[in-house]
Design a protein around this nucleic acid. Structure first.
Lengths: 189, 189
DNA sequence: CACCTTTATTGATCAAGGTCAACGAATTAC
DNA sequence: GTAATTCGTTGACCTTGATCAATAAAGGTG
């Protein structure tokens, strides 16, 4: 858990002690490839923090999946929208690889927040990071073509591209695998 | 300013006193239709709160504008992305109607934040509201067709639709005015 | 190693929405 | 009231990316 703690401490500018307090309420869980971490339709009452492995968070659009996000080592994974609004999740979270994840429940987090003011500030920072991230993606979806989105992704997220099959990358970019293949043929290699 | 104060107090669950403190640092400004509130390319160092009127916040995509958002009575108006990240704004904010707006600068807000802890919590709430809003729009842009986006908008934001010319609605939905016209012909009237 | 499943590529065709141009209605300006 | 913009509608055509189908390549599994 040390690497995760270090990462969290630096991300939220926490002391070692604070990071330890925060992580003390997490429980380690193991998932196999294709296991479901969170079912669609339920209110999301937990937040995961991935030690090892890879998950995807997907919408279902009349039968086929549209990837909302990926999460791997040191990333949080949750439907934070459902978590905040207390509404049933429109997303499913599933493992793409065998994954080890530390999990905290809503209750534990709230209890922690009552005892430790720094948790409140973490949640503020989290909201801000998520706003910025959503903004970036919305902007890209408003302004960029499929080609531009793909080119940006492979230059900015080569970590993802290396690790994730092309048809999942396509889904994340909201384009079809065939189109990705054609873009690659035309612009790369 | 009373209506605005009331609105802010209820939105952030502030006491009358807190709302007054918050608003004390705002300066009233008047703009005419077509006046620019914030130029593209500059770091956004202010937040407006509209008392009367209507503004649009737009991206420029090779010459033509794509509307990021509208703001009117009781709404905040800013490029909060630029504000938070301290990076030059990719958006321009311009008045669609004559507009009266209360404006606070970054420095004033920071000063206020140092003296009054409740301001910190307001900013946390603001980040959360913006995350949720961005999330909704991203989701819609991932899952919905032009027709679905338009139908949703007219049912959910009839206030906007009544007040804003069709070509601006089109731009907000990231579709062309001709397409809106065709959607209306096919599904409405 | 041979088989089976999953993933990627390619071609042919299709659909959604964009582009361009013309026209008409509505506003605004003089 | 007439001219001049601005805005909305319509038609013809075009582009992007989706769909469908076939095939090839890669990875797993017995």
């Amino acid at each position: 858990m040390d690497k995760v703690r270090e990462h969290i401490a630096s991300l939220f500018k926490l002391s070692e002690g604070q990071a330890s307090i925060f992580l003390s309420e997490f429980t380690r869980k193991e998932f196999k490839k294709n296991d479901i971490f969170m079912e669609s339709g339920k209110i999301c009452n937990k937040i995961g923090l991935i030690e090892r492995g890879l998950m995807k968070c997907v919408f279902n659009k009349n039968g086929d999946e549209i990837i909302f996000e990926f999460a791997f080592e040191n990333n949080f994974i949750s439907d934070y929208y459902s978590f905040l609004t207390n509404t049933p999740s429109a997303k499913e979270i599933r493992c793409i690889e065998d994954t080890t994840v530390y999990v905290i429940t809503r209750e534990s987090l709230e209890r922690l927040g009552r005892d430790h003011p720094f948790i409140e500030s973490m949640s503020g920072q989290m909201n801000q990071m998520l706003f910025l991230k959503m903004h970036d993606r919305l902007k890209s979806s408003l302004l960029d073509s499929a080609v531009e989105r793909y080119i940006k992704l492979i230059s900015e997220r080569s970590d993802l591209v290396q690790r994730i099959p092309q048809y999942l990358i396509a889904s994340y970019l909201n384009i079809k695998p065939e189109t990705v293949s054609r873009i690659r043929k035309k612009y790369i290699i």
